[in-house]
Amino acid sequence: MAELKPLAEDALPPLLLTQEDLGKGYAQAQEQPGDRKPDDVSVQGCPSLEKLGRSGEKDMFAVKAETSFIYARDATLSEELHSDRPSVLSSKLSELFGAYISCPTYTMTSGTTPIEVKVSKAATPELGDEQFAYTLMMELPSGPQVLKTMAVRKDNIAVMLVGAPALVDRHIKTAVGKLSAGN
């Protein structure tokens, strides 16, 4: 049997979560110009993440769509959808998540601010064909912040949620459920 091909670029946005999917209290985040400056962030003390940063993860998959939400004014939930051949998604997600959990601690520098990061592998629900998850605890100048990243691959689509752990856990099943409409 031939391996599934990536979806067309316009097929992913309709599969993203919406405010209606999430329920009350969520607002679509409006990205401001200049919000994302990945060149301003570097990693020290974790060779696998340093290597990943040099190779550039932004063009890791053939097709991508993304959205983000704010919940109760301060918690965030971001979603990325990726489509590629299943073998490519599997291999690259394994590499990405493996890099993160390979170092239990490292330092991330944002601008000139060093941020201590602790990483732990996280449990995943039995959804889709493959599941990956980790939790980051960052010591920010404003205080500690915990973020969970979870990805689920289903055929030739992967959904990745990043945000407050309770929000990721609460919405991953809905996000994966929407993937069925893409195939």
Results as ranks from 00 to 15, higher is better:
residue 42 S to I: 13
residue 159 V to H: 00
residue 33 P to A: 13
residue 14 P to I: 09
residue 130 E to A: 12
residue 118 K to R: 14
residue 178 K to G: 09
residue 155 D to P: 02
residue 16 L to W: 02
residue 20 E to K: 12
residue 107 T to E: 15
residue 97 F to N: 02
residue 169 D to T: 12
residue 34 G to C: 08
residue 82 H to Y: 10
residue 175 A to G: 06
residue 162 V to A: 15
residue 7 L to S: 07
residue 174 T to Q: 14
residue 68 S to A: 15
residue 169 D to I: 10
residue 168 V to S: 02
residue 86 P to C: 08
residue 136 L to F: 07
residue 70 I to G: 03
residue 140 L to K: 13
residue 137 M to K: 11
residue 7 L to R: 10
residue 28 Q to D: 10
residue 35 D to W: 04
residue 103 C to S: 06
residue 84 D to F: 07
residue 93 L to F: 03
residue 62 A to C: 04
residue 56 G to D: 06
residue 75 A to D: 12
residue 152 V to Q: 00
residue 18 T to E: 12
residue 123 A to I: 03
residue 175 A to P: 05
residue 55 S to L: 13
residue 31 E to K: 15
residue 89 L to P: 01
residue 148 K to H: 12
residue 94 S to R: 11
residue 1 M to R: 10
residue 21 D to Y: 08
residue 66 E to K: 07
residue 108 M to G: 11
residue 155 D to M: 07
residue 20 E to P: 03
residue 154 K to H: 09
residue 129 D to R: 05
residue 165 P to F: 04
residue 9 E to I: 09
residue 122 A to W: 07
residue 62 A to N: 05
residue 10 D to C: 05
residue 137 M to Y: 02
residue 113 T to I: 13
residue 79 E to P: 03
residue 60 M to P: 00
residue 105 T to A: 14
residue 141 P to K: 10
residue 88 V to Q: 14
residue 79 E to L: 05
residue 93 L to K: 00
residue 25 G to T: 06
residue 132 F to A: 00
residue 162 V to G: 12
residue 52 L to E: 09
residue 126 E to T: 11
residue 12 L to C: 03
residue 90 S to M: 04
residue 158 A to E: 00
residue 149 T to S: 14
residue 29 A to N: 08
residue 147 L to N: 14
residue 32 Q to P: 01
residue 127 L to S: 02
residue 84 D to Q: 06
residue 33 P to K: 12
residue 91 S to R: 15
residue 31 E to D: 13
residue 96 L to N: 08
residue 54 R to W: 13
residue 75 A to M: 14
residue 80 E to T: 11
residue 163 G to S: 13
residue 125 P to Y: 01
residue 53 G to E: 12
residue 45 G to E: 11
residue 88 V to R: 12
residue 19 Q to M: 12
residue 109 T to Y: 15
residue 34 G to E: 08
residue 85 R to N: 09
residue 109 T to D: 15
residue 149 T to G: 08
residue 87 S to G: 05
residue 112 T to C: 06
